Simulated assay, not measured.
Amino acid sequence: MTERTTITEDSVPGLPVGVKLRFDKQRDQWVILAPERLFVLDSIALEIVKRCDGKASVGEIVNDLAGTFEAPRDVILKDVGALLQDLADKRILAA
């Protein structure tokens, strides 16, 4: 069994091999395509996942989102951390 990936502010998230962020024309929305799975993203999740490029840390992503949306950093960190941990637990995000 594989050890659970824990997302922290220092984690550098990215999509693993075989997982893609794509715009689905038939659904007219953004999705994450993974082997035998599809995840539909709402606008908030899309803004977060778009920034998971394997280069920026969670802290950097949070800073960018807090500045872009003029929202409190601590609130953004909590929400981003929860989403990224959920995606990591489903093995559609690597860190």
Rank of each mutant, 00 (worst) to 15 (best):
G14Q: 08
V75G: 12
I61E: 03
D86V: 11
Q85K: 07
G67H: 09
E9R: 14
D10K: 09
K55P: 04
T5Q: 12
V62E: 03
I76G: 03
T68A: 12
P72I: 10
L38K: 12
L46M: 08
I44Y: 15
D79P: 05
A88L: 07
V49S: 00
N63R: 13
R4D: 09
V17E: 14
E9V: 11
G59S: 12
L33K: 12
R73W: 12
E47K: 11
D42I: 02
I32C: 00
A82L: 11
K90S: 10
F39N: 03
K25R: 13
P16C: 06
D24P: 08
D86N: 14
A88D: 10
S11I: 01
L65I: 15
S11R: 02
C52Y: 08
I32T: 00
D79I: 10
Q29H: 04
I48G: 01
L33Q: 12
D74K: 15
I92T: 05
L41D: 05
T6C: 06
K78T: 15
L83S: 04
L93H: 02
V75A: 14
L38V: 10
S43L: 15
T6S: 08
E36S: 13
L77N: 14
V12E: 01
L33N: 13
V62H: 07
V49Q: 00
G14N: 08
L77M: 15
E70K: 11
A88S: 14
G54I: 09
L41V: 06
D53F: 15
Q85P: 09
L33G: 11
D10Y: 06
I61H: 03
